[in-house]
């Protein structure tokens, strides 16, 4: 059974994105243990996909008015509202050979960790390609993957108590995108663990469930760890990039 590092933290959107990129860069540079990060965005923030146009996907004015930062990721995919009090983000930074060389298969394998985490709460989820996990047809988790050399970074959400009304206010979800999933409103398309369970679910339990879920999915053991000095230094430099208008408001 292989050992992986487990890193748990709370931080700003800029910091969290910088840490993911720092670990990806350093893990690709030389042989290091694979990593699972579980983290919270504080304050609540929006991340958008690398290829997205910010004004087409986010109500920037509303976000600014409410002090919600918007940060562009290095991964593709869609815009995400990371609710400080309702969402845990995970990231897997691992050798591609330890997951799967086929991209779709690697999404499936990593998302199986989320499916196991749902079982912890007595909930049954489903992986829906390309990158979603749903409960009763509604999205509870979305993921985004990037590969660099022999290493992959996949990060994604797990909404346990996200304020769905905020998603509606902050993100511009095209009606035809909702319709393609048979939904009319965001409430038909997106859900949370608490909503599906019918009772309040707490962050600490979600973190525990994800840890156990990924252990089961990958047949690994986690070693709780902190960032190394090297990771901390590189992340500190990268925070700069994720704080710049040129990056976040590129188009």
């Amino acid at each position: 059974m292989d050992n992986w590092r487990l890193l748990v933290n709370i931080g700003t959107a800029q910091y969290n994105m910088a840490v993911d990129e720092a670990i990806l860069t350093l893990n690709d540079a030389k042989e290091r243990l694979n990593v699972l990060r579980l983290y919270i965005f504080k304050p609540s923030a929006i991340t958008i996909g690398y290829f997205q146009k910010i004004y087409e996907t986010v109500n920037v004015e509303y976000a600014n008015k409410n002090g919600i930062p918007i940060v562009r990721r290095i991964t593709g995919g869609g815009a995400v509202f990371h609710d400080e009090n309702g969402e845990v983000t995970y990231s897997v930074i691992a050798k591609i050979n330890d997951i799967a060389s086929d991209v779709q298969e690697s999404y499936r394998k990593i998302c199986s960790g989320i499916l196991y985490a749902l079982n912890y709460f007595g909930l049954e989820g489903r992986f829906e390609p390309v990158n979603d996990v749903t409960i009763n047809g509604k999205k509870v988790s979305g993921s985004a993957q990037l590969r660099r050399g022999g290493t992959l970074l996949q990060h994604g959400t797990l909404m346990y108590n996200t304020d769905l009304s905020k998603i509606e206010q902050l993100l511009r979800v095209p009606k035809d995108k909702l319709a393609s999933h048979g939904a009319k409103t965001i409430y038909d398309r997106v859900t949370t663990l608490s909503r599906e369970k019918g009772s309040v679910i707490y962050r600490e339990d979600v973190i525990k469930a994800l840890k156990e879920g990924f252990e089961k999915a990958f047949n690994i053991t986690f070693i709780s760890d902190d960032l190394s000095d090297e990771e901390r230094d590189l992340a500190a430099k990268l925070v700069n990039k994720y704080s710049q208008m040129e990056w976040n408001f590129r188009w």
Partner: peptide, 15 residues
């Protein structure tokens, strides 16, 4: 030219 959306593509340097 701009190619935007919620798709995935890598390496981003090649994109």
């Amino acid at each position: 030219a701009i190619i935007s959306g919620d798709f995935f593509a890598f390496p981003i340097e090649e994109f």
